[in-house]
Deep mutational scan, measured.
Amino acid sequence: MGFKLLSKLLVYLTASIMAIASPLAFSVDSSGEYPTVSEIPVGEVRLYQIADGVWSHIATQSFDGAVYPSNGLIVRDGDELLLIDTAWGAKNTAALLAEIEKQIGLPVTRAVSTHFHDDRVGGVDVLRAAGVATYASPSTRRLAEVEGNEIPTHSLEGLSSSGDAVRFGPVELFYPGAAHSTDNLIVYVPSASVLYGGCAIYELSRTSAGNVADADLAEWPTSIERIQQHYPEAQFVIPGHGLPGGLDLLKHTTNVVKAHTNRSVVE
C-alpha cells in the first residue's frame, strides 16, 4: 500500500471513529477524501466538511520552486461564519470567499490569524475590503508590521502568557507558548472536538522541520505538551499544512522538532 493511500485511509478511519463516538456532533463529509496538494491548482481553494458547521479550507501556493498546501478553518456561528487564517495570499483568499459563498452561503463576518507569517495573514486586506472584521493577538499584529505583512485590524486580548485561553464565538483560542513562531495560536472547536494546530503542528508525513527561522526550538516541545494537557479530548487535529489526523500529530511534531534540534547540535 502506497504512503499517500495509507495517509488518506488514516484520515478516513479517524473521521469514521469520530462519527461513531459522537453521532450528534459529527456529520463528516462523505463526498470524498481530504484534498491534497496535487489536486488543488494554485489560485483555487477546496472546502472539506469535518463536522456539522465545521470545515477546513485548503489552498496551495508556490514557494521556492515548489507547491505547498495550506489549511485553515471555518466555523459556523449562528447565521454567520468565523474564518481562521487566510488562504495564503490575496488571490487565494478572494477564491476562498467565493467558494464559501458557493458552498455554504453564509457571510464571513470575523477572521482570526493564528500567527504573523504570510500563509496566515496574506489576504487580510481582501477580507477587510469584503467587510470582514480581522483579528490577531497584539504580538501577531506587531510582528506582521515588522515583517511588512498585512496586519489584522483588531487585537485579541488575554493571550499574552503561555497557557492563556479565551473564548471567541464558537471557538476557544489558546496560546501554548512559542513553537513554530513566538505568537502562534491554537484554535479548538469544543462542539466538535476539532483542534486546529496551525503551523505549530505537523502532518504525519512530514519528517523535516522546514521553516524554523522564527521558531523557538527549545520551547516548542513544552508548548505541545500544554496543548495535549489542555485538549486531551480532541479527536480531529488539523495541521497548518497537509493531512489531518488525531492527537498523534502532536507527538510526531515533537519528535521531528527534537530530531532537528539534535542534528543542529551535532553539526
Rank of each mutant, 00 (worst) to 15 (best):
L5N: 10
L5Y: 09
S7R: 07
K8F: 15
K8D: 14
L9I: 15
L9F: 09
Y12V: 09
L13Q: 08
T14Y: 10
A15H: 13
A21Y: 15
A21G: 14
F26M: 15
V28T: 10
D29Q: 08
S30D: 14
P35H: 14
T36W: 15
E39A: 14
G43D: 11
V45R: 01
V45E: 03
R46G: 10
Q49L: 09
A51W: 07
D52F: 10
V54N: 01
H57S: 03
S62H: 06
S62M: 07
Y68L: 12
Y68K: 04
N71H: 01
G72K: 02
R76H: 07
D77F: 07
G78S: 08
E80C: 06
G89S: 06
T93A: 02
T93W: 00
A95H: 14
A98R: 14
E99T: 12
I104M: 05
L106C: 06
P107C: 05
T109N: 13
V112A: 06
H115V: 00
F116R: 04
H117Y: 03
G123R: 04
V126P: 02
A133S: 10
E145G: 13
E147V: 12
E147D: 09
G158H: 13
D164L: 10
V166W: 07
V166Q: 11
R167S: 11
P170G: 08
E172Q: 09
L173C: 02
F174A: 02
F174V: 02
P176N: 01
G177V: 04
H180F: 01
L185K: 02
V187K: 01
Y188W: 13
P190V: 08
G197Q: 02
I201M: 07
Y202A: 15
E203C: 04
T207Q: 14
T207E: 15
A209M: 06
A209G: 07
G210F: 04
N211G: 09
V212C: 04
L217T: 12
E219P: 05
E219T: 10
E219V: 09
E219Y: 07
W220K: 01
S223Y: 03
E225H: 09
Y231K: 00
A234P: 07
Q235G: 09
Q235C: 08
V237Q: 01
I238S: 01
P239V: 01
G240P: 03
H241R: 03
G245N: 04
G246E: 12
L247N: 14
L250T: 02
K251W: 12
N255M: 08
N255C: 06
T261R: 12
N262W: 10
R263S: 13
S264M: 10
V265T: 13
V265K: 12
